[in-house]
Computed example of a mutant assay.
Amino acid sequence: MIISEVDKKIIRALQNDFPIVSEPYKAIAGEIGISEESLMQRLALMKETGVLRKMGAVLRHMDVGFKANALVVWVVPEEIMDEVAQKMCAHPAVTHCYDRNTAPNWPYNFYTMIHGDSEEYCASLVKQLSEETGIKEYELQFTEKEWKKTSMKYYME
């Protein structure tokens, strides 16, 4: 796929804060000077061709009131990974789920992120997830400092 000047404008616009309005794609399209329909078609083509792999929100946990955030690392048997992942992903306190490779002295192959108003609350949620899934081997690693979250920027003028 050849990336046109319009595509570059779309990519630049998507790298900014997402508009908090009822029709965000319409607002982005207006900023670029194209129709919302055209924007959606271009995004679908970029996704289909691999130019655009994903779009995601960045949540600054502490800014929105969470007082405790825990990365939980789990040892999940490969044969039940999908089942466990579905259960954990369905829990409202879990915002991220990843399966990862293990390493020497690091047996953990599944990671979740849990948010709550205290470390005790997060620990109780993790205990509940452990009981629901039968996964007993895990560790909690609480956030001590929230680092600035930035992404790559493309086609900047």
Rank of each mutant, 00 (worst) to 15 (best):
74 W>L: 09
63 D>W: 08
133 T>I: 11
137 E>Y: 06
39 L>A: 01
13 A>Y: 10
69 N>Y: 15
1 M>F: 07
155 Y>I: 14
123 A>P: 04
127 K>R: 09
6 V>G: 07
137 E>K: 02
63 D>G: 03
25 Y>M: 12
108 Y>D: 06
91 H>M: 10
113 M>R: 06
37 E>L: 14
125 L>N: 03
30 G>F: 03
148 K>Q: 12
24 P>T: 12
54 K>M: 14
29 A>M: 03
58 V>W: 06
28 I>W: 09
71 L>M: 15
36 E>G: 08
147 W>S: 13
10 I>L: 10
122 C>I: 11
143 T>W: 15
82 D>W: 06
109 N>W: 06
70 A>E: 00
3 I>G: 02
154 Y>E: 15
94 V>C: 02
53 R>Y: 15
84 V>Q: 01
119 E>Q: 07
96 H>P: 02
155 Y>L: 13
84 V>M: 03
37 E>S: 12
150 T>G: 08
71 L>S: 06
64 V>Y: 05
45 L>Y: 10
59 L>G: 02
69 N>D: 08
64 V>E: 14
146 E>F: 00
59 L>D: 09
53 R>S: 05
64 V>P: 10
80 I>T: 07
21 V>C: 13
36 E>L: 06
100 R>H: 11
35 S>E: 02
39 L>R: 00
132 E>P: 07
